[in-house]
Simulated scan of single mutants.
Amino acid sequence: MAKKVEIILLRATVLEPGEIAVPRIEPYDVDEKVAADLVHRGRAKLVNDNVSDTGGESAYDALLDSVDSAIRNLKPEDFGSDGKPKLDPIRRLLPQDAKAINTAVRDEVWEDLLEDGFEAPKAS
Rank of each mutant, 00 (worst) to 15 (best):
M1G: 14
A2F: 02
A2H: 09
K4P: 06
K4Y: 06
K4C: 00
K4R: 15
V5R: 14
V5E: 14
E6M: 10
I7W: 04
I8W: 09
L9N: 05
L9K: 10
L10T: 00
R11C: 04
A12K: 13
A12T: 15
A12G: 14
T13D: 11
T13F: 02
T13W: 05
V14R: 04
V14P: 00
L15R: 05
E16T: 10
P17N: 01
E19I: 13
I20D: 00
I20L: 15
P23G: 03
R24I: 01
R24H: 06
I25Q: 13
E26N: 11
P27A: 03
Y28Q: 01
Y28G: 00
D29Y: 04
D29F: 07
D29G: 02
D29M: 13
K33L: 09
A36S: 14
L38Y: 07
L38C: 09
L38K: 11
V39P: 07
R41L: 11
R41S: 12
K45S: 04
K45I: 11
L46I: 00
V47M: 09
N48A: 05
D49N: 11
D49I: 00
D49L: 09
N50D: 13
N50S: 12
N50M: 01
V51M: 07
D53S: 12
T54H: 07
T54R: 10
G56V: 00
G56A: 09
G56Q: 07
E57M: 12
S58V: 02
S58F: 03
A59G: 00
Y60P: 00
Y60S: 08
A62S: 15
L64Y: 02
D65W: 12
S66H: 05
S66A: 15
V67H: 09
V67R: 06
D68G: 03
D68K: 12
S69H: 05
A70V: 04
I71R: 01
I71Y: 08
R72M: 10
N73L: 10
K75L: 12
K75D: 14
K75H: 13
K75I: 01
E77L: 10
D78Q: 01
D78K: 02
S81T: 13
D82Q: 06
G83M: 05
G83D: 08
K84C: 02
K84I: 00
P85T: 05
D88M: 07
P89D: 05
I90W: 08
I90Q: 04
R92D: 13
L94D: 09
L94Y: 11
Q96G: 05
A98N: 05
I101E: 08
I101P: 04
N102S: 06
N102T: 03
T103Q: 15
T103S: 15
T103Y: 03
V105Y: 02
V105A: 08
R106G: 00
R106W: 00
D107R: 11
D107I: 06
E108G: 06
V109G: 06
V109R: 12
W110K: 07
W110A: 08
E111N: 03
E111G: 01
E111A: 14
L113Y: 08
L113R: 14
L114D: 01
E115D: 13
G117K: 11
G117E: 09
F118E: 08
A120M: 02
P121M: 08
A123F: 10
A123K: 15
A123N: 07
A123R: 14
S124I: 01
S124L: 11
